Simulated assay, not measured.
Amino acid sequence: MSRSRLENNEVDSAVVLSALGSKYSAEILCAAGTPKSAQALSETIEIPIATCYRRIEELVDAGLLTCEGRQLSDEGRRTNIYRRTLDEIEIDFSDDAPGFSRKRRTEAKNRLQDQLEE
């Protein structure tokens, strides 16, 4: 479901608002400016790993976070790596239903930020 919604850019504003309204979602998005595993996000934000996984799933379904691939953890397990898909979001409440616009992250910005983190 989340991949087809993301590819077609048909994410419902209610899904986005719901994901953003969940506790810790904003913190996860802020921390996911560079690729991070759920474990790293959980430790950075100091939240339980189960909660972190639930928020990640909501954010991915809303198209606000994406899985960039997999890497080996310190324990030798393959883990998903996540990064936010936007830098800004604007919510408009002036119509009958809320709408939103977002400033998507470019691949060039992702590569530049990755190089700065190394």
Rank of each mutant, 00 (worst) to 15 (best):
Q39H: 12
S101R: 12
I45F: 05
E107Q: 15
K103H: 03
S13T: 13
T79G: 01
T85I: 05
R102W: 08
K109C: 00
C30R: 03
L29E: 03
V15G: 10
A14D: 12
A32W: 02
E58H: 05
A38T: 04
R3D: 08
I47E: 00
T34K: 04
R77A: 12
E90V: 06
V11A: 03
I89V: 03
G63S: 03
R102K: 13
T44K: 14
A26E: 14
V60H: 10
R78V: 11
E10V: 03
N80V: 07
K23I: 04
A40K: 15
D95M: 04
G63P: 08
R78I: 04
E27V: 03
S37M: 04
S18F: 00
P48T: 10
S2G: 12
S73T: 14
R5C: 10
Y24C: 06
S94F: 09
R111F: 14
K36F: 02
P35L: 04
D114C: 03
L112K: 13
K109F: 03
A26P: 08
S22I: 11
R77H: 15
L72F: 14
R55M: 04
L72I: 14
V15L: 14
A19T: 09
R102I: 09
L6H: 12
N8A: 02
N9Y: 07
L64R: 00
P98H: 11
A97P: 06
A62R: 06
L64N: 04
Q39T: 13
R84D: 06
C30W: 09
F93C: 01
K23W: 06
E43G: 04
A62F: 04
A38Q: 09
Q71M: 12
S73W: 10
L64Y: 08
S22T: 09
R84F: 01
D12S: 13
N110A: 15
L17W: 02
V15Q: 10
Q113L: 15
A19N: 09
D92N: 15
I28M: 05
R77F: 14
E68F: 04
E10R: 04
C30F: 01
I56P: 05
R78L: 07
A31G: 10
V15M: 12
L17R: 11
S22R: 14
T85S: 02
S22K: 12
R77Y: 12
I28C: 07
R84E: 11
F93I: 05
R70A: 10
A14N: 11
C67E: 06
Q115R: 14
S42E: 01
S4W: 13
A14Y: 01
R54Y: 05
D74C: 02
R77C: 12
F93Y: 14
R54A: 06
V11T: 11
T85P: 02
E75M: 07
S73H: 11
T44N: 10
A62C: 10
E58Y: 01
G69N: 09
E43I: 07
I89N: 00
E10A: 01
R55I: 08
T79I: 08
R105P: 06
Q115V: 12
D74L: 06
E117K: 15
K103Y: 02
E117D: 15
G69Q: 04
D61V: 05
I56A: 01
C30T: 11
E10W: 05
P35Q: 02
